[in-house]
Every structure is written in structure tokens, then in C-alpha cells.
Design a protein around this nucleic acid. Structure first.
Lengths: 346, 346
DNA sequence: TCCCCGTTGTGAAACCTTTCAATCAAGGAT
DNA sequence: ATCCTTGATTGAAAGGTTTCACAACGGGGA
């Protein structure tokens, strides 16, 4: 392949100054064409616009930001960009941001604190107007520090512990509770909770909710089995399925509650392919209701979270914080909802 | 909730100047601490660093960029952030970028040209060092224009038509061909191709490859049925399943080749839930081999693309273009590979 | 004819950083 | 005592934009 002729620019890119020169106007006028077109006569405006087109002028956002002190940009630091739950949340944020004429950058921490920290530092230096984040650790001291240094921040899908920012969550304890109550309704008295690691707050809360409901039903603690996974992935669901199959028959649960749908789908696949029937031999309920849940060959019952709404609410809180001097930090909590499908209903 | 005491900053954020003042050094020295720490004595360095910490100094990236003329940032404009294929590509890009000490911003065009255009304009203004993009339309005149205006660009998963940039692709015709050849091997003589809309280049190419293989096998064109969908989603796969079921029995295919895995999974679910067996009644092969494919209750055969490698290669080409004055544009093409699972093997 | 006002256009200052030539101090060699 | 060298520090310029006080111009009213 041959290198195509490079653009004929003389090293530097055209600036407003160049445009001004070519259009025979002052620098300020060019800026006016850009920002207050009404304050400049039609004829000069034309001239300036033609000059911009001829030169291939592209405004330098760094310079503008430097001058203006704001960037009209939000960023969302996701915990796991490959989990459909988070991409849906991102979609909700994006829609709200678009409506408010803000750009949105997505960053992926991939569950690693170091990567998260690097992203945060960079975003702060970029002077984004606000940061949305689903943090690896919501108690990390960086978060309040960032706010304190002047960049507003909203935590998504975890509760704010520090009082210095808003948060938007779904009630994970309640989610755990309704999942278990549903299984109890179906007559199950021996159930496994599959998920982990325990360092993930969402997992802890869902498990606790499950325990509460279990105890209230008067069932013995020992009949709610805990199977801990190393991650919330399809792969780990598979592994968990094998571990369950290894249990002596009488200890085996008749139903499983998975900490998220990825795990549930992995488990489902393992269970079905090993010849068991779902839900007759084993009922399964997942969490998140990602779009693949309904599409599984045994449609998966799941605890639905309002994913897009979650994102939208978070973005709106941030927008308020940026624009409204009387903003007060809020903790918004959504309510999950059980979607019962074949995997628990026979 | 009460508003927590705002940070005690006096309106403005601390700049190097403030740091310099507090540390009793000149402005240039602070910059040296930041950029060439070796060129400043240990004692002053300490003093400066303490001042930075005390003031909560955060470097202003806009100013730096303005001065330096480069941002050390790439961006990837994705076609569909909710499709696992693209998030995996993004992951590959991210890993390569991280290794080269570049930040990566992700943008989602969501298949809409207008959104894509808005993102591109904004990125150009931000002066990102380079753009990776899976375009809605690879022939859009914006792409060469952006390059011509000085921002290098690499097209991902589509071939470059203009000679002004690199591209990284997977051979979609070959992918279509091997999918069909696999089905022919299994003895199928009546097959449907499901996917659309036809405006998507990937869909066209895969279909053409399929046709070629079909003709070479000497089978009549009419026995390769075309079922066009409105999008490449799980939902649309479902719809397509219903349409197939509506065909008179003798016209019904014994196997289906889907343009991507989302469609295949939707179809699979519809087929299974309507009581047919896979692959006995209907064999299914998908495309992309996303992680949910292996995890489907009938594990899905699929044409695997090297997703992460695709992203990595694209990022590396862009890095070369940015750093190497002798860079020559290249079209890199990867080869897809069939992964046979239960959905075609019984 | 003169004054005032509204409309256009101007030019310099400010935003914050990096760079580079120049200065300064101190110590070693002559 | 003087000169050189080395290493540390300085100060000013540059980078592209927006803003704002101001000038220039023309026209309407008195």
C-alpha cells in the first residue's frame, strides 16, 4: 500500500487567527461567528464561514476549555464494560447527557482499582464537568477527594457512604429477598445462593436479603447453601454448576439463586447439558434481567433492575449538581422487581 | 440529606503559579518537578510536592495539551456498545493503548450517523491523537476529511475504501463460506440465511460468501433461502424464527446460518420454546462466537472472529501512524474460524 | 447641522502550561 | 585570586480561544 498524499497543511493547523486573516476580519469577529452569530452581519458571517471551510478549520477545544473553565463533558467509569448490565446503564446516562447537550466519555475500570484510579486522575485533569462511576470500592478515599477538589461525582449502583456526593442504587437487599420469596412460593425448602467474591457489595447485599427472607420463613440456616464464585461471569457459573452436581444427592438444593445473570446463564448451561431438567430438577433465578436472560433456551427468571432509568437518574442528579447552586446531595433508590419465567415456573 | 460543606477553594482551582508561590520557587521549577524531576534538587522537589498536596493541585490538561499540541489519547467510536462483539474489540484496543501509555475514550454511535458525526466532531476538537472507528457507513466522506484535517484514523471491522487510512477486518466472505461449508458437510441441502438489514456491509459480505459456497456445491439458488431482519438483535432473531415456522413444511430449511450470534440466540430460543429440537429439527450456526454462544442451553456453533486481536491490531496500526513518519497505510485482514458445537452436531 | 443611539467590528487581556535561553551559585582547577 | 564547569533555578514567550471595554459607522430625531 502506498502512502497517500498527506494533507497540504504547513505543519500547523489553522487557528481562528488564520481564519480572521483570510476573511479580512478581526479575531474577535471570528469568535463571534462561532458563539454569537446574531451579533455579526450576514455578509461578514458568510465570508468567515467560507474562510473556515476553505482552511478546514477545526476549533481547538483545549484552548476553549482553558479559557472557559468547563468542558461540557461527563464521563462514566464502568466496572465491567463486557457486562450487559453496565452497558445498559451507560445507555441511560448517554441519553440524558445527549438531551442536555453534553458529551459522554466511557471508561472501563475492568474491576481493577489501579485502572480506575488512572482513569479518574486523567478525567480530573481533563476537567470534565462531572464524573459518574460504579466504583470498585465505594469507600475508596479518592472519591471524596475528587469532589473536594472540585469535580462533582455521582456513584452509580452503590450507596454513597461519604456525604459528599449523590448516589443512585437499586435496593439489593430487597432484590435478594424477593428472589427467595419467589422460590419459597414455589415450594422450595433447600436453596443455594451462588455468587462472589464477597468483596463485591452487590453480592453481599443480595445474599443478606436472601438470608433475611429465609429466616423469616422459619427455615433453618443450614438449608440456604452458600456457593462462592471467584467472579460474576458465565465461566464461573459453569464451575458452580459442577460443584453443585458434586454434592451428595440429599444435600443438593432444588433451586438456585444466582447473584447475577451471567452466573445464572453459565450455571443453566452446565445443568442442562449434564442432562438435568430446568426447573423440574433444579429451578434457577438470576439477577439483572439482561436481554440474554429472556433469550436463554430455558427462559430465565430474574430480578429486574431498571437499568436505563438508573443511568438516567444518575445523569440528572449530576446535571443538577453542576447547574444548580442550591443542589443537595441525594441518595436515590430504585426498587427491583421479579420477572418469573420458565426457569422457575415449569 | 444535607449539603456537605463545599471544598474551601476560593473560586479558582490552584494552578502551578499558586504552587510556585507557596513553595517559594519559580513557575518553571514546578513544571520541572512535574516533567523532569531529576533536574531539580531533592529539597526543592520536596517543598514543591508538599505544596501541591496542601493545595490539592490538579494539573490542567487543557493547558498542557494546548501547549504540547498532543493529548496522548485515543478514542474508539463503537457501532453498538451493547453488542458483546464490540466490547471485546474495545478491550483489545484498550490493552494495546494501555501498554503505550495512552488513554482511551469510548464513544457509542449506536448505529446512528448523526450521533457518530457528533462524536467525531467533538473528538477532532478535543485533538485526540487518533481515532478508531467502526463506522455506520465506511464510505462516508467525513472519514477521509478527518484524516485530511490532521487526525489519523483507523477503520475497524470494515475495509478502507479511501486510501487515506488503515483498516483492520476479518474476511467476512470467507466466514460466510465456511459456515455454509460446515452445514453442507453435515448433509444439509436446504438452508436459510437470516440477517439484515442489507445496508450493513458485514451482512452483505457474509451472505455473498455463503452464496459462493452454495453455488460451488452445485446446489440450486432457490434452496438457499434469504430471510431479512430489521436489525441484528436477539429480538429480531425471535421474529425470524416465527417466520421460518410459518413456512410450508416442504419449504422449510433444515439448517440456518445467522448473520450474528444475537440473531442466532434469539432464533434458537424461539425454535426450542416452540418444541423443535436443535439440531435434529433445525441446525443453527451463528457468527462472532460471543461468550454467550458457548453458554446457550444448546451450545451454539459459530464463526469465531479474533475480537481482541482485531482491536489490538487496529490500535497498533494507529500507534505506528502517530509515531512513525514513514508509516504506510495497511489493510490487515484476519481469518475467521468455525467453532462447531451442539447446535449443528447433534 | 448636530447629537445620540444602535449596530458591527476591533484588540488586548486572561486562562495555564511547557520550553528554552539565560542567570546564578558553588566548587575545582590553574 | 581568577576562570571554568556543572547543576539548579528563573522569567518570558508561545499556544488558541473567549470576553469585554471600546471605536467606528450610519441613521433618525431635534
Amino acid at each position: 500500500m502506498s502512502r497517500t498524499a498527506a494533507s497540504p497543511r504547513p505543519g500547523r493547523r489553522p487557528s481562528v487567527k488564520d481564519v480572521a486573516e483570510r476573511a479580512q476580519v478581526s479575531l474577535g469577529t471570528v469568535s463571534n461567528v462561532l458563539n454569537r452569530p446574531d451579533r455579526v452581519s450576514a455578509s461578514t458571517r458568510d465570508r468567515v464561514e467560507r474562510a473556515m471551510a476553505d482552511l478546514g478549520f477545526v476549533l481547538n477545544e483545549s484552548a476553549r476549555q482553558l479559557r472557559m473553565g468547563r468542558s461540557n463533558t461527563f464521563a462514566y467509569v464502568m466496572l465491567d464494560a463486557t457486562n450487559p448490565f453496565f452497558t445498559d446503564v451507560a445507555r441511560g446516562i448517554e441519553l440524558a447527557a445527549e438531551k442536555a447537550d453534553l458529551s459522554l466519555f466511557l471508561c472501563n475500570s475492568d474491576g481493577r482499582s489501579t485502572r480506575e484510579g488512572a482513569h479518574l486522575a486523567h478525567l480530573q485533569q481533563q476537567r470534565v464537568d462531572g464524573i459518574l462511576i460504579t466504583p470498585v470500592d465505594p469507600d475508596a478515599p479518592e472519591l471524596p477527594r475528587i469532589v473536594q477538589q472540585g469535580t462533582p461525582l455521582v456513584v452509580v449502583d452503590r450507596a454513597a457512604t461519604s456525604g459528599s456526593f449523590c448516589s443512585v442504587t437499586v435496593d439489593d437487599r430487597l432484590g435478594g429477598r424477593i428472589a427467595i420469596e419467589h422460590l419459597l412460593d414455589q415450594g422450595h425448602t433447600r436453596v443455594a445462593f451462588v455468587g462472589g467474591p464477597d468483596s463485591i457489595g452487590q453480592v453481599r447485599d443480595r445474599y443478606e436479603g436472601a438470608c433475611e427472607a429465609w429466616r423469616e420463613a422459619g427455615l433453618p440456616d443450614t438449608d440456604l447453601i452458600r456457593v462462592e464464585t471467584e467472579a460474576l461471569s458465565v465461566q464461573e457459573g459453569h464451575v458452580a454448576g459442577e460443584r453443585l452436581a458434586g454434592l451428595p444427592k440429599r444435600k443438593r438444593p432444588s433451586a438456585v439463586f444466582c447473584a447475577n445473570d451471567l452466573v445464572a446463564l453459565g450455571l443453566l448451561q452446565q445443568v442442562v447439558s449434564s442432562g438435568q431438567r430446568v426447573p423440574e430438577d433444579l429451578a434457577i433465578v438470576g439477577y439483572d434481567d439482561i436481554s440474554f436472560a429472556a433469550g436463554a433456551a430455558v427462559p430465565l427468571s430474574s430480578v429486574r433492575q431498571p437499568r436505563q432509568a438508573l443511568g438516567r437518574a444518575a445523569a440528572e442528579l449530576l446535571i443538577d449538581e453542576v447547574n444548580n447552586p442550591d443542589h443537595e446531595h441525594q441518595q436515590v433508590e430504585f426498587t427491583p422487581e421479579l420477572v418469573a419465567r420458565t426457569s422457575t415456573l415449569g
